[in-house]
Design a protein around this nucleic acid. Structure first.
Lengths: 205, 205
DNA sequence: ACAAAAAATATACTATAGGAAATTTTTTGT
DNA sequence: ACAAAAAATTTCCTATAGTATATTTTTTGT
C-alpha cells in the first residue's frame, strides 16, 4: 500500500481531539438537535425526556443523570460516548455531494447480490459496506425517501443509476463512477438502461 | 435504493452501545476504585462525592448526574469519556478483521489509477475513498508498515492482493472479495499473479 | 476467638432532577 | 400588521439524587 496513511488522516478530519467538552453537554445537545432540524417536542418524543427538561438541560439549568443521557443518546441514535465526545456531529453539512467520473468506461460484470451487507459479522464498525442491486426504475416506486445524518460513498459496479434528491436535479452515474454525499437530504436511486445496476456503497455517520 | 437505511443504522449502532456499557457505570466504578486499592472514603475524598452516594452508584441504586460523574472523573484523574468507555474493551478491538468472499468469480476489468483519491474536492468527510493499483510484489519493498487508528474497508476490483499483518498470517484476496479491518496493527498489501491488482478502499476513523 | 478498627451499607433528610401544564416567545399565513 | 399556530420557557409539583449520620458488616491484631 504505497500511500501515506497519515496524509489521509490529516486530510480527513480533526477527530475528537479537542473534545471532551463533557462539561458543555447543554450547548452540544442544542446544536445537535438544531442540526437535525428537531423541535424540543421532536427530541422529547425521540428520547422520552420531557421537552421542558430537555430545554433546561440545553441551557444548563439542569445536570442530567446518566440514565437521562442514555435515553437522549438512544433518541439521537447515538451511543453515550459519541454524544459526550463528538463535537463535529453537530454541523449540518446539508446535502453536500461530489462526483468523480470514471476515467475509463471499461465494463464490469455484475454480482447478483441484493442489498447484501458485507463483512456483517464484524460488529461495531464505523462504516457499513453494502452491495445493492438497484431494482426500481421510477421514483414512484418509493413510498419514503430515506434521510439520515449519515454520509454515503457509492461506486457503480455495473449498469446505470440515477440519483434523485430533493435538492438537486437527477444525476446519472455509470459504471466506475463514484459519488460521495451527505444523506441528510431525502434521496433515492433508480436504475436506467438494459443492464442490471449494481452499487457498492459505504455508509457511515 | 430499495433498502431501509434505518435498519442498517440500528444494526450498526446497537453494538457501540453494547461496547460502551454506559449503563454499567456502577460495576465499572467499583472495579476502578478497587483497582486502585481505594476505600469508599478515599473515593469520596478524591471526588467530593459522599461515600454513601458512591456506594449507591456502584451498586446501581442511584443514577448519577453528569456533574457528579464529572467530579468522580476528576477524582480519578480521568476524563469523562474514558471513564464511560470500558478500558478493557479497547484491546479486544485491536486488529479485528473480517473477510467476505466474492460469491461469484466473474472478472472485473481494472482501472489504471494509482492511489487516486475519489471525491477529493469534498472536504471534512468522515470517510476517504481511494482507488489504488498495488505495485509491490514483496513485503521487502516497504520501508514502513503503516499503522493508524482508522478502520478500512477494501474490495478487490481486479487481480490478487495479499494482505500482510503483524498479527495475522498473510491472506489472499481475489476479485470481488471484500475485507474490513482495523488498521491499528501494522499492515501492508502486495500483489500476486499476472493481472494488475486494483483495490477500492475506504478509510475512516 | 474476641475485641477494636475500618470499611461498607442503611436511614433520614435536603437539594435537585424531571414531568405536566400554563405562559411567553417565535414563527407562519393571510 | 395581525391573528393563529408552533416552539420555547416558566411554574409548580413529584420523584429521586446526594449528604450526614447511624448501623451493620468485614477486617485486623492479639
Amino acid at each position: 500500500m504505497n500511500v501515506d496513511l497519515e496524509d489521509f488522516q490529516a486530510n480527513r478530519r480533526q477527530v475528537s481531539v479537542a473534545s471532551d467538552q463533557s462539561d458543555e453537554i447543554g450547548p452540544r445537545l442544542h446544536h445537535l438537535r438544531k442540526g437535525r432540524g428537531w423541535t424540543l417536542q421532536d427530541a422529547s418524543k425521540a428520547s422520552g425526556i420531557s421537552a421542558s427538561a430537555f430545554s433546561k438541560i440545553e441551557r444548563g439549568e439542569l445536570s442530567p443523570t446518566i440514565s437521562t443521557i442514555q435515553r437522549i443518546a438512544r433518541g439521537f441514535d447515538m451511543d453515550v460516548v459519541s454524544l459526550l465526545s463528538d463535537p463535529d456531529a453537530q454541523p449540518t453539512l446539508l446535502g453536500r455531494r461530489s462526483v468523480t467520473r470514471a476515467n475509463e468506461g471499461k465494463p464490469h460484470l455484475s454480482g447478483n447480490c441484493d442489498n447484501k451487507l458485507l463483512c456483517a459479522e464484524l460488529k461495531n464498525k464505523r462504516m457499513t459496506p453494502i452491495k445493492t442491486r438497484v431494482v426500481a426504475r421510477d421514483v414512484e416506486e418509493y413510498d419514503v425517501w430515506p434521510k439520515t445524518d449519515a454520509e454515503i460513498f457509492m461506486t457503480i459496479l455495473s449498469g446505470t443509476v440515477v440519483v434523485h434528491s430533493k435538492i438537486y436535479e437527477p444525476l446519472e452515474l455509470h459504471e466506475g463512477d463514484s459519488m460521495y454525499y451527505d444523506a441528510s437530504a431525502e434521496h433515492v436511486w433508480t436504475r436506467k438502461g438494459p443492464e442490471e445496476a449494481v452499487v457498492l456503497w459505504v455508509l457511515t455517520s
